[in-house]
Design a protein around this nucleic acid. Sequence first.
DNA 1: CGTCACTATCTTGTGGCGCAAGATAGTGGC
DNA 2: GCCACTATCTTGCGCCACAAGATAGTGACG
Lengths: 127, 127
Amino acid sequence: MHRMTKELPTAGDQRRSQLLRGVLDLCLLALIAERPRYGYEFIEALTESGLELVGEGSIYPLLARMERAGLVEPFRAPSSSGGAPRKYYRLSEAGRAELERGRAVWQGFTAQADRILTRTIHGGTTP
Amino acid sequence: MHRMTKELPTAGDQRRSQLLRGVLDLCLLALIAERPRYGYEFIEALTESGLELVGEGSIYPLLARMERAGLVEPFRAPSSSGGAPRKYYRLSEAGRAELERGRAVWQGFTAQADRILTRTIHGGTTP
DNA sequence: CGTCACTATCTTGTGGCGCAAGATAGTGGC
DNA sequence: GCCACTATCTTGCGCCACAAGATAGTGACG
């Protein structure tokens, strides 16, 4: 049985989805560095912001991976607004180190890519 | 004689490899926008630059995909330095449009990510 | 009590794509 | 013929964002 493509993603959406790779984990680490957070928090905040950035299917597996890698440490706490108990994450030492290392890689990479992408900004239809 | 330095990928390399997704095609489009290019050109230039950025296994399939998508148009030309004939690519109208669209998505995305990543540059060991 | 709505986490399957490694050719020097 | 260099194309693997759905805990309402 075939899947019915419910809503084919736009080209921009698909690109953004690819761009998230390699930096989404750093974003979560940075936000957790501010204060402990739980998964649903990210989804709610991002959904309300109008930035339909990331869904549960991206966040939870990523958090699990980071936990497995020892970058974050989980602890349980009851929900303050009624509901299932939350799983908060705080940053580990390794997580903080990875965040700083990743930030450097990210900034070096974007600088390089920007240099290539802005070399021919004129893009006129007049050759 | 082949390259013996078979260094297994570091964490930074793996991150960079993920970061390329979503922007590598734009880089190629931007470089082709300057002047027509062929695949081997990218690899040679990048290898000599010390930036071991991308290999054949990334470039050629990507070029084929972009051709299939109508973003670039190929034409054959004999090698000027002895060797197999080259397959040059020039930008199509759709390619130029996609390049501009992609640049906008890229800059919007990186601005957003940068804002998140630079929010907590300092380290706070206070929970 | 049952049902519903909301909060919250976890799991499964799919698809895209960077990449290593190897196959295939064309050219020219020995 | 053989080899080295230039150049392209192909195969298989692994990572990961994402959609969709399963699982639970809580409280309100009738």
